[in-house]
């Protein structure tokens, strides 16, 4: 992992849907081992940015690269590095956590023993009693953990998270933050879209504020307190 220089890079990307501009000349870089948070209101362009890195949305102009590979044109290759955790990790409810993990790993061509799969789930914070329970009985937090375990087992170098903490209780949210820090420490590049200012301040290295498709402010989280960040965010939203 240390040798892998994972990097997310968006250079002058713009995207419009009809007359509506989702992104305007966005420039963004996430280094290896860094957690970057995109803050913004609904429709600010957070999910569009993530979809571009996933290779599902093509920019009208500009380039999106992952480890210097074009995320649109070489999507099949860049997707191998990506772990994606959406707001709601919808797993197969009739399968257990470990079966879901096994299934998604096999799709990626990875075959793990039951012990290894259990290790992944445990590492991602899912208690062992839950491993073999059907996902239909899981809380949202537990499903998020399986989602992260899927990315972790894939040995993802890049984690893209779209509102991952939305709807999580404080404990589950805390566990998620710890897990993300752990992954970053291992060298992963993490880009997280969120509304949660305090969580962003707590867990991320850098924060970008998106407003109507424009990256209006970028700052290091250590430069501001949570309250200052909230004030800053509100000011940008009002103006």
């Amino acid at each position: 992992m240390e040798n892998f220089y994972a990097m997310l890079k968006a250079t002058n990307i713009s995207k419009s849907y009809g007359n509506s501009h989702a992104l305007k000349d966005l420039n963004l870089t996430v280094q290896s081992g860094e957690i970057y948070s995109l803050l913004g209101a609904n429709g600010a362009g957070k999910s569009t940015t993530i979809n571009m890195f996933l290779g599902f949305t093509e920019p009208d102009s500009g380039t999106v690269t992952i480890a210097e590979k074009d995320a649109t044109k070489q999507a099949a290759e860049t997707r191998k590095f990506i772990g994606y955790i959406p707001e709601n990790v919808n797993l197969y409810p009739y399968l257990s956590g470990i079966e879901n993990l096994d299934y998604f790993c096999r799709l990626a061509g990875l075959k793990y023993s039951t012990g290894e799969l259990q290790d992944f789930l445990t590492t991602c914070g899912l208690q062992s009693e839950a491993h073999k329970k059907k996902v239909s009985g899981y809380s949202k937090g537990m499903r998020q953990k399986v989602g992260i375990a899927i990315a972790y087992a894939k040995k993802a170098k890049v984690y893209l998270l779209d509102e991952p903490a939305s709807g999580l209780d404080p404990l589950a949210s805390n566990e998620l933050s710890e897990l993300l820090r752990k992954l970053a420490k291992e060298g992963a590049s993490i880009l997280m879209a969120t509304h949660d200012i305090f969580r962003a301040r707590e867990v991320c290295d850098r924060i970008g504020i998106l407003k109507q498709g424009n990256l209006v402010k970028e700052l290091k989280s250590e430069e501001v307190t949570a309250n200052e960040l909230e004030q800053l965010y509100l000011e940008y939203m009002k103006n």
Binding site: F56, R79, K80, I82, V89, N90, L91, C105, L107, G109
Partner: peptide
Amino acid sequence: QSGRLKLLVLQGA
């Protein structure tokens, strides 16, 4: 609708 399609495609399907 569940969003799993993205996950499936990302996993290589």
